[in-house]
Write a protein that binds this DNA or RNA. Sequence first.
DNA 1: AAGTTTTGATTGATTTTGATTGTTTGGCAA
DNA 2: TTGCCAAACAATCAAAATCAATCAAAACTT
Lengths: 258, 258
Amino acid sequence: MGIGQLRRTDLIRRALEEENLVSVAALVRRTGASTATIRRDLERLEKTGFLVRTYGGAVRQDIPDEFLFPRKAERNRAAKAAIARRALALLKEGDTIFLDSGTTAREMARLIGRTDRTFTVVTNSLPAAGELQRNQSLKIFLLGGFLRRELLDFFSPAVLAELEKFHLNKAFLGIDGLTAADGLTTTDVDSARIEETAMRISQVVVVLADRSKIGRTTLIPYGTLKKIDCLITDRGADPRELSRLRRAGLKIILTEGK
Amino acid sequence: MGIGQLRRTDLIRRALEEENLVSVAALVRRTGASTATIRRDLERLEKTGFLVRTYGGAVRQDIPDEFLFPRKAERNRAAKAAIARRALALLKEGDTIFLDSGTTAREMARLIGRTDRTFTVVTNSLPAAGELQRNQSLKIFLLGGFLRRELLDFFSPAVLAELEKFHLNKAFLGIDGLTAADGLTTTDVDSARIEETAMRISQVVVVLADRSKIGRTTLIPYGTLKKIDCLITDRGADPRELSRLRRAGLKIILTEGK
DNA sequence: AAGTTTTGATTGATTTTGATTGTTTGGCAA
DNA sequence: TTGCCAAACAATCAAAATCAATCAAAACTT
């Protein structure tokens, strides 16, 4: 492995960390190397699993799925990132927290993986574990089980018992639907059981939900509004539903910006 | 050791502390020495473990290897990849297997992640899970627990009970040391317990060990040679130790090539 | 001064790179 | 949808850069 290669590799990694997507042309410009060389670099990095090549460039691999389709992901991501940022502000040094396997919680894992603060994190999400692992100061407990591909998380009946043993400060839960009338709903019965358990053992329960989840009801109801201490959502959420939720006693935090 | 050498060595160290990576050409410029001399300096510093040489220069040894994949790592990887490839050939469609968290098993996970065959894989390794996850035709069970950073795997006492429930066709175990006299040894007591359990519940136990593990004894003995059905190693392994192991009744598979 | 270590130059081999080739891809207009 | 075109691609090859090995000159040691 040559030193020029290493320099470019580092540059490519950095570019991908920031952007999630790079073009061959941009890398040619930034490195001064030829397209052939850049392609060879990308090919090599693809073999190591760090990225996935696309027509014209490459996207990050270490956050699977979602970023293979960057356009779709990008639209929601700003709102979710803002929610995750806001949630991060609730954390205190030394907290023991639960992160579920939704995309918003994953975004939060990404941020936590980049802070220099110390937490203990319990999760059943594979991508979250990948993000968190990079931060040396975190203690991480992964709930194991069979991999579920839709969510890239793990479940087995035994994890409920395992989780039950913990006492958590804060649980951060993504959801599929939330209304004042129907409460929390999700589409997956096993996820519901994990989240119910997490709610039971947590002092504080925080629900993370972008605008699309507010006022929506899906298949499986779980938990109760009363157990939720706080909802974090963005300003795009339906204000009438929000005021209904507020009247039902829910504390609501709105993220900054549009 | 000459005074010129000391001066250059010092300069190289400082350059590496700043940059993580230096080129031979740059060092020639900065020292006025010839390329041959600089190369000799780098060679010497590589032996002391301070740096790893690369084509055209060197990188620091102690930086997180995320940063780069120095030549040394790659060289081992070739041997390990060959062992992993050979191990893959033992698999039959539909097998249920265990992979431990060693680097060789991880290489195997990488390969399995790229086959189009169908297996059920049980592991406690985070990188292995990441590799396997991409292959849609695999069923994956991850043994959870607290993340252990040295190996990037998970352990909690409960996983032993969890693992005990399975019946496996084949277990693939990396090890730290193997001799006819002392049997299997490892450096980690928790890993040893997981591997012992995996051996107990598997019909076939395959040990993956590159040359450096053969004839070596480390801290903690576990399992017995009798439980091992097969050892896969490379042709660089000490032939005398291999014949001793063969006489002890172990079946040995050598990988192709040097 | 003789012996040892360090150095620089030279050689052929190896690795990396860039240019060229013909092929494939994805968008776009009909 | 179909067919077209420009851009991106993989494959190949030759040039450039770097390598290890060798040897002799230079610099140190005793």
